[in-house]
Design a protein around this nucleic acid. Sequence first.
DNA 1: AATTAAAACAACAGCATCATGATGCTACGT
DNA 2: ACGTAGCATCATGATGCTGTTGTTTTAATT
Lengths: 101, 101
Amino acid sequence: MDALAEYFKVFSEPNRLSVLDALRAGPLNVTAVVEKTGHSQALVSKHLKLLTIAGVVRRRPEGSLVFYEVIDKSVFKLLARAEKLMLTAKRQQLDALAAIL
Amino acid sequence: MDALAEYFKVFSEPNRLSVLDALRAGPLNVTAVVEKTGHSQALVSKHLKLLTIAGVVRRRPEGSLVFYEVIDKSVFKLLARAEKLMLTAKRQQLDALAAIL
DNA sequence: AATTAAAACAACAGCATCATGATGCTACGT
DNA sequence: ACGTAGCATCATGATGCTGTTGTTTTAATT
């Protein structure tokens, strides 16, 4: 239960999520992620490290560049499922509100 | 992207996850959750409030008791998927570790 | 009305996390 | 060997979250 919470924590940060999303189409090196996300280099590097430690992303040095890529693309299915759940949750909230009025 | 991160944050806390898990079998009142989880009453109340605001759980007063129940049980599928992903991720981590040694 | 049990609220201390700016470190080209 | 680009790390300040204690509300019971 503890480990699961930590795993969810990986995806509970907007900037980290955007870094992960930048890798959706395929591997990118750090600078490319920086440009794609608009975040500072230090920040991107940090989040990529976290994602690597979490086992979500793989680090692959190539010459003087370092490429990162998503290991198991089914993480995006997780994101999609969460998004769907979130939407229905919000709708339920509205329904609950309507039931009161 | 922001909202998604916040939604994930709901599940990124061990105690909150255990509170949610306590409601897996069905509705419970606060005291029952307290007994099932072993957490303090105040803490349980707090987490239940959060889960309610997040739209994961529904609050239903009944007499002097207040029952809580999971609105959409497919949240547990989200948890299961995350757990699965986590396990494969950990294996990949071990492999990566082994590649270094 | 007073009492009691259940649940929520408030204030506080402690802790973790995040973003930034600066600095270090590698690998490559000249 | 030197300079540079790419990436990682460090130290710091700021912010937010968690859990506890103590109090308050709500509802039922006598």
